[in-house]
Design a binder for these strands. Structure first.
Length: 707
RNA sequence: GGGCCCGUAGCUCAGUGGUUAGAGCAGGGGACUCAUAAUCCCUUGGUCGUGUGUUCGAAUCACACCGGGCCUACCA
C-alpha cells in the first residue's frame, strides 16, 4: 500500500459544560477522540485536537448566583478541574480554550455579521413572563397558574392537563413563578431569529450527500426537521444572561448554542496564535471552494441537531469550511443501566483516577467502541476480566516473561527466524489502521490481541526458560527467542500506542527508544541494548472496583447533582428508596438486582410527603402502553390526577375505591396524555413480573401522612 | 403511533450470499513453571429469535411476526 500524503486534520470533542465535573460518560467521547488524534499523528499526519469549556447560559448564571460568586470565578474553578481530569486521563489537547474568551467574542461577531449580510437575521417581539424577584425571564416550565380555557388550577405554562388546551404562558390566569413564588409580569422583549429555512436546500443536500453525516443520522434528519420548513432559530436571550452581548442589539445576548460551536474556532484561533499559524488554513476554503483542512467533530447523539443543521448553516453562511465528518456516539451505561448515584455507578473521572489506572479505561473503551451510535456499556466485571487478560496477561506479559534474558546481551544482531510471526503482524498493520480510521477501535483491538496470542504461543513452544538453564551453548538461541518476543511486544505497543500512550512509552524505554511512527511496527529491531525490565501494568483487583463504587456513592452524597433540574423519567411506579426487609428465606434476587440506596437522613425522608389516598376514578388510556389514568382523593375535596405505570397489572374497575400510598408533593410531570400530579407507590423488581400496589391497614384515611 | 438499530455458544461479540458458523471470557481436562495464580494445548457448548419466500446455495437478501433497545410524539 502506498504511503498516503500527509493530511491535516482538525479534531474536536464537544465542549463540556462548565456546570459539572467530568464523569466516565463524558470520557467515552474524549477518550475516543484522543485515540483517533493520536492514531493520526502516529501515521504521520498533522492532527490538532481542540476543545474548550462551554461557559455561558442561564444555568451557569443561576448556579453562580446560588454560590454567591461571579460567573468568572465559577467557570475558572471548573476549568481547572476539567483540565486536571483530562490531563490525568492522558487526553492530549493541542489547545483547550473557553467560550468566554476574547477570541470567541470576536469570532461570534464575525459569524454574526455574516448571517446579517446574508439577510438571515430577523427581529420579532416576543411576549414572555418575567420574574421580578428572581430578575429573570421564565421558561414555560418555571410558570404555573390556572388554565385560561377550563379554569383548572395548578397548570404549567404551556398546556393544560385537564382540558388538553395548549396556550402560551402569558395566557395563564394567576401565574406564579416556580423559582421565587412571585407573580410574573408580562414583558415584551425583542428576540433575534435566524431564518435557517433559507438554507433548507443546502442542508438537505449536505446532510445527504457530503459523506459527513452517517446515513442513518441523515435519514433521521430528513424525516424530522428537514421534512418540513425549518423553524426560525431563536438565537438571542434578553438580559440578564451570562454570555456575550450582541454588538448591534444592546441588551440582547447570544444564546449559548450560538457561541458554543464557535468555541471550536476560537480554540483554533488561540492555538494558531501560539503556533504562528493562520485560522484560515484550518477553517477556510481554498480558491476552488474546498476546505483547506479536514474537520472532524466527535459528539454525543444528543447534540446531533446542532452539529448537522445549525452549525453547518452558520459555516455555510460565513463561507467557511464545512465539517468533513461528524462522528456520533451513544451514551454510557454501567452494568447495563443508566449511571446511578445510589448504585455508585455515577463515577467521576477524578474518583476513577483515585482508584485505577487511566490506561485500563482507555483500553476497555477502545475494545468496545465500534463507531456506531449505540450506547456503550461499562460492565465492571467484564472490565476487570478483559483488562487483566488482554493488557496484563497477554501484552505486558510478553515483555515481563522474556526481557530479563536480554538485559545483559541486548537484542540479537540480526532479527532471528520467527516462523513469519513478525511479518504476519506487520501485514496486519494496514487493516488495523483502517479500523482506527473508521472509528472501529474494537476491531483494531481484536486484531492486535490475536497477534498477542500468537506471540505467547511462540514463547511457550520455544521454552526459553529451558534454554536459560541449558548453559552457555544455548545462550545464542535464548537470545534469539527473547529477541523475537521483545520485538513482537514492541510491535504491539506501536499498534496500541494511540490507546495506551503510557505503555508505548514504557516499551520505548525498554527497547528502541520512543515510538514515533506507525511504520515502526513493520521493522524489527536488532543489535541494540535492552533496559532493565520495569513492570508495565498492574492487574485490577476486585477490591479496587468495590472501593471505586463505594467512593462514587459517597461522592454523590457529598456533591448534589449539578446541572439543570432534569426530572426523572415517567413519574410512575418505581421508587428508589426501598426499606430494608428482615433476613428471611425469601429470594435474594430483588435486593441484588437493586442494591440499597445510599443512607439518607430523616430530613431527607421528610422531603417526600407520602399520603394515603383513595382511588376515586381509574380509566384506561387507550394509546398508552403502560399507563392508567387515576384520580385520587386526599380527603376533603383535594384530588390529584396521577398517571401510574400499572396498566396490564391492574383492572381499572377493580382499583376504584381502594386505598393506596401516593407521593403527594412530587413535582408535576407533563406526560403525553396529560399532567401527572403525583405518583402511586408500588413495589417492583427482579424475581417477579408485576407491579404491586401498597395498601394500609384498616382504619387509615385519605390524607394521613406516612412517617 | 412513527423512525432507526439489534436478536449468533452461559456472557461479550465477530462473521453481511459460497466448503463441516468463529473468537475472547466463563466451564471441563491436561501441559508448563520464564512471567503480575500470568501462558500454552485439548475440550464441552449453537434448530445463527420464529415463520414464509428469493436462490443451485441464506446467519447473510426480502416480507411478516415475536423479543430487546434508542430516538421521536407538535421540545430543540
Amino acid at each position: 500500500m502506498p504511503t498516503s500524503p500527509q493530511r491535516r486534520l482538525l479534531v474536536t470533542s464537544a465542549l463540556p459544560y462548565a456546570n459539572g465535573h467530568i464523569h466516565l460518560g463524558h470520557l467515552v467521547e474524549y477518550l475516543q477522540t484522543d485515540i483517533f488524534v493520536r492514531f493520526q499523528r502516529l501515521r504521520g499526519h498533522q492532527a490538532i485536537y481542540l476543545c474548550a469549556d462551554d461557559t455561558h447560559g442561564t444555568a451557569i448564571m443561576l448556579r453562580a448566583r446560588a454560590e454567591g460568586r461571579s460567573e468568572q470565578e465559577l467557570i475558572a474553578a471548573m476549568r481547572e478541574a476539567h483540565l486536571a481530569d483530562f490531563t490525568d486521563f492522558q487526553i492530549a489537547f493541542d489547545h483547550y480554550g473557553s467560550t468566554d474568551s476574547p477570541a470567541n467574542r470576536q469570532l461570534c461577531g464575525e459569524l454574526w455579521q455574516a448571517l446579517r449580510r446574508r439577510g438571515l437575521v430577523v427581529t420579532r417581539e416576543v411576549q414572555q413572563l418575567y420574574d421580578p424577584e428572581a430578575g429573570v425571564f421564565l421558561a414555560d416550565r418555571f410558570v404555573k397558574g390556572t388554565c385560561p380555557k377550563c379554569g383548572g388550577g395548578d397548570q404549567y405554562g404551556d398546556a393544560c392537563e385537564q382540558c388538553g388546551a395548549t396556550y402560551t404562558p402569558t395566557e395563564l390566569v394567576d401565574p406564579v413563578s416556580t423559582l421565587s413564588g412571585a407573580r410574573p409580569e408580562v414583558r415584551s422583549a425583542e428576540h433575534l431569529f435566524v431564518t435557517i429555512e433559507d438554507l433548507h436546500e443546502f442542508l438537505a443536500q449536505w446532510t445527504r450527500d457530503s459523506g459527513a453525516v452517517d446515513p442513518r443520522i441523515a435519514n433521521y434528519l430528513s424525516g424530522h426537521f428537514l421534512a418540513e420548513p425549518l423553524r426560525d432559530w431563536d438565537i438571542s436571550r434578553p438580559a440578564p444572561y451570562f454570555g456575550f452581548e450582541i454588538p448591534d442589539a444592546p441588551g440582547q445576548y447570544w444564546y449559548v448554542w450560538f457561541d458554543a460551536p464557535v468555541g471550536y474556532m476560537a480554540a483554533t484561533e488561540e492555538w494558531c496564535r501560539q503556533q504562528g499559524d493562520r485560522l484560515d488554513d484550518w477553517w477556510g476554503r481554498d480558491e476552488t471552494g474546498r476546505p483547506r483542512a479536514e474537520i472532524h467533530h466527535f459528539i454525543g447523539k444528543d447534540i446531533v441537531y446542532f452539529h448537522t443543521l445549525f452549525w453547518p448553516a452558520m459555516l455555510e453562511a460565513a463561507g467557511l469550511a464545512l465539517p468533513t465528518k461528524v462522528r456520533v456516539h451513544g451514551f454510557l451505561t454501567v452494568n447495563g443501566q443508566k449511571m446511578s448515584k445510589s448504585r455508585g455507578t455515577f463515577i467521576l473521572a477524578r474518583t476513577y483516577l483515585e482508584h485505577l489506572d487511566p490506561g485500563m479505561l482507555r483500553y476497555y473503551y477502545a475494545a468496545k467502541i465500534s463507531g456506531g451510535i449505540d450506547d456503550l456499556d461499562l460492565n465492571l466485571e467484564e472490565f476487570t476480566a478483559k483488562v487483566n487478560a488482554d493488557i496484563v496477561g497477554k501484552v505486558a506479559n510478553l515483555a515481563s516473561r522474556t526481557a530479563r534474558w536480554l538485559t545483559a546481551s541486548g537484542l540479537s544482531d540480526s532479527y532471528p527466524d520467527d516462523g513469519g510471526l513478525f511479518v504476519k503482524a506487520a501485514a496486519d498493520g494496514e487493516t488495523i489502521a483502517a479500523a482506527y480510521e473508521a472509528g472501529d477501535f474494537a476491531r483494531a483491538m481484536r486484531i492486535v490481541m490475536l497477534a498477542a496470542d500468537r506471540a505467547n504461543a511462540y514463547i511457550d513452544a520455544e521454552q526459553p526458560w529451558k534454554l536459560a538453564k541449558a548453559g552457555p551453548e544455548a545462550a545464542a538461541r535464548l537470545q534469539d527467542v527473547a529477541s523475537v518476543a521483545i520485538n513482537l511486544f514492541r510491535q504491539l505497543a506501536v499498534y496500541l500506542a494511540p490507546v495506551l500512550p503510557q505503555l508505548a512509552e514504557q516499551a520505548g524505554a525498554l527497547v528502541g527508544g520512543p515510538i514515533r511512527h506507525w511504520s515502526e511496527a513493520a521493522r524489527p529491531l536488532a543489535g541494540i541494548p535492552v533496559a532493565a525490565f520495569q513492570p508495565l501494568a498492574r492487574r485490577i483487583e476486585q477490591a479496587q472496583i468495590e472501593s471505586l463504587v463505594a467512593a462514587s456513592r459517597s461522592a454523590a452524597e457529598a456533591s448534589p447533582p449539578a446541572g439543570s433540574p432534569v426530572l426523572q423519567t415517567s413519574g410512575a411506579s418505581t421508587m428508589d428508596e426501598t426499606p430494608a426487609a428482615p433476613p428471611s428465606a425469601d429470594p435474594a434476587a430483588p435486593l441484588e438486582a437493586e442494591p440499597l440506596a445510599e443512607e439518607c437522613t430523616i430530613d431527607d425522608f421528610a422531603k417526600v410527603d407520602l399520603r394515603i389516598a383513595r382511588i376515586v376514578a381509574a380509566e384506561e388510556v387507550p394509546e398508552a402502553r403502560k399507563l392508567l389514568k387515576l384520580n385520587v382523593s386526599l380527603g376533603g375535596d383535594v384530588t390529584r390526577t396521577v398517571f401510574a405505570g400499572i396498566k396490564g397489572f391492574h383492572e381499572p374497575a377493580a382499583l376504584v375505591g381502594r386505598l393506596v400510598v401516593v407521593v403527594a408533593n412530587l413535582a408535576p410531570r407533563k406526560m403525553k396524555f396529560g399532567l401527572s400530579e403525583g405518583m402511586v407507590v408500588a413495589a417492583s423488581g427482579a424475581g417477579a413480573d408485576g407491579v404491586f400496589l401498597l395498601s394500609p391497614d384498616a382504619g387509615a384515611l385519605p390524607g394521613m401522612r406516612l412517617r
